[in-house]
Design a protein around this nucleic acid. Sequence first.
DNA 1: TGGGATT
Length: 358
Amino acid sequence: METQLSNGPTCNNTANGSTAINNCSSPVDLGNAEDSKTNLIVNYLPQNMTQEELKSLFGSIGEIESCKLVRDKITGQSLGYGFVNYVDPKDAEKAINTLNGLRLQTKTIKVSYARPSSASIRDANLYVSGLPKTMTQKELEQLFSQYGRIITSRILVDQVTGVSRGVGFIRFDKRIEAEEAIKGLNGQKPPGATEPITVKFANNPSQKTNQAILSQLYHSPNRRYPGPLAQQAQRFRLDNLLNMAYGVKRFPPMTIDGMTSLAGINIPGHAGTGWCIFVYNLAPDADESILWQMFGPFGAVTNVKVIRDFNTNKCKGFGFVTMTNYDEAAMAIASLNGYRLGDRVLQVSFKTNKTHKA
DNA sequence: TGGGATT
């Protein structure tokens, strides 16, 4: 077993082999008085963000009527967006003004009014390939805007060079608009282009998630899970992120649910606080951040604690991590037990009732 | 040949 957190806390990476040019158009105003002015959709959430963290963040603005993080029905993985419905429309507006564009980890979240849920707005996302490498996002939108209202657009670029990969996405307001755009533009040459473009419906996001999960579960040799570990090693939880956000955004202090109240982790196997994991053979200078970084990629982590000597303040060699979901905790244990951190091989298991005296 | 916006 040689799973490695190769670059440690500062490991620099992005999710895949490509990144996108600016994908955030500004939140749209509601043209329809019947539309809700309290219900928001929040996009581009970090993969690991939990519903509770979403609620904590948006609850700092005002009273929330309901809040939902959208998850894959099968795997439970976050699909990276959610809904926040406020009691007061003024708070919804304030949340857009305050939180839209907030950077969380590698993401820049987008906060906008949710459109009324309707079958007509589903599956309205197009995959476009064969674009001229010189085509900008604005030009792409101009090309497609004749077919309807564009909700989002994006052009994928090479991660290293920043050059367009000739591939993009267009999300229309309505599926019927997307259908018309396919009819009108698939196989056509854009103005000035030498090659025709391909326009088709994009894949469904949850399918990809399922593939990724299955790949992690069944196709990784030797119980290694390089996806989450290598790609998401630098992920921090909401409290870290909010500290960063304070410097930029200035919203009122808040309590992070389930984090400040979970200091007493010594209660063995205590029900209701999640699954407690014992981590052994940490270095004397280990701190909480390394635990967040190692375990965060596997799912919802509510608490970490490094046990330190009272006098020296050095780590006694072990610590604890609490995770909300059993399967995520089990995955973390399977992946991280035997993991080499520096010159130490960690032992990771569910916490038992043993006492560990050092 | 590819990000992730409708509960």
